[in-house]
Design a protein around this nucleic acid. Sequence first.
DNA 1: ACCTTAGGTTACTTGCGAGTATACAGTTCA
DNA 2: TGAACTGTATACTCGCAAGTAACCTAAGGT
Lengths: 212, 212
Amino acid sequence: MRQAGSTSSPWVSRRDRAAERQSKRDAVLRTAVRFFNAQGFHATSLDDVARALSVTKPTIYHYFSNKDEILFECVRLGLETIRDATEAAHADGGPARDRLETFMREYALVMTRDFGICVTRTSDDQLGDESRAKFRALKREINEGLQSLVEEGMRDGSLAPGNAQVVAFTVAGALNWIARWYRPEGGLSAQQVADNTVATLIHGLIPRAPAS
Amino acid sequence: MRQAGSTSSPWVSRRDRAAERQSKRDAVLRTAVRFFNAQGFHATSLDDVARALSVTKPTIYHYFSNKDEILFECVRLGLETIRDATEAAHADGGPARDRLETFMREYALVMTRDFGICVTRTSDDQLGDESRAKFRALKREINEGLQSLVEEGMRDGSLAPGNAQVVAFTVAGALNWIARWYRPEGGLSAQQVADNTVATLIHGLIPRAPAS
DNA sequence: ACCTTAGGTTACTTGCGAGTATACAGTTCA
DNA sequence: TGAACTGTATACTCGCAAGTAACCTAAGGT
């Protein structure tokens, strides 16, 4: 630690205290999410996490009030990244299809990273009542954003007509699934996976004449 | 119970004993899988399952040796249905694309039913070592079948060229996801969901000239 | 010099739920 | 009639991991 603040002076503490606390909180989350992804939430004890950080369990309780909060913070970090991308996709101009494609690519990339992976591995029965409600709300928000983007595209003709809800879930499923199979050490980079998946969804499985 | 065997006679027991035992075993699985899907595996105690069947926990242990076995049998039932469909798809003649499409539709339908739902809700860290190995093996078998079907289609030109592995995972993800969002009481029938999802995957998101 | 607070520890409580020991009733078959 | 087995219940053990109590230390402000 002792990573100093803006000016590097021995008189660390003023506003830096808060920053240091935050950085330790983050460290707990980063460590916890790896365990959750590797072993599952229930199979991970806070002692595991503590040990990995060379501290003890009560220390963790100094930063979080319970295990639930830790899990929720993990999924929140993943979900908020995606939600921000949804909002960006709506704000941008241009044909809906292009905005959708950009969004999908971003979504896919999140799914190759720890917090994104945690989102799809977490089912709401693992969370307490209040966290579960927030978790669901965030997911719904994202899904509605995706679906409305699809609807827009169907309206403006840049997307093929169909059932927007099913299409949105199909896209979400294909993208979420990346979190379940992607391995960084495998042959493909995250970017390649994202590009290929998005291309498959956009163009479909059967051949198509060169012109898009 | 007392549902009798082939001939309806009061002398029930001979070969029927085994059948009755089997039917009770099945009842445990059907009840358990509903709980697992509704509340999650860890959040479901065997007392819950027992109570729902109006028996007690030791009775369940009379049919299964542990909780693990119950979960594994649930996912096995789901997975084997899919695997059989894979094999059928390989055995059939005709262009690979058609066989793939049939297989996808069947896969999608399984994902609307209890045991199929359980498959995608179960992550391997919930299983013991031996069950986990079998679970993974079954899933791999299915995925390899799917991927080889895709490769075949790319070779014979009935599918667009691309990275067969990514395509297979994209398809699997979209189909698996059905288990996470489909609700029978919602507006769409299982068949409609299957047809729409498959159509989206086959044709892609962007418009296409009428001729396939 | 002293009080307070933050960050940490050791050692505990506690509850839940998986799994078991044991007993008992009914049925089959010798 | 009675041995053996099957299916079920009651009442227990037991371990694990979440969460807590109580205590320690060092640093900052005054």
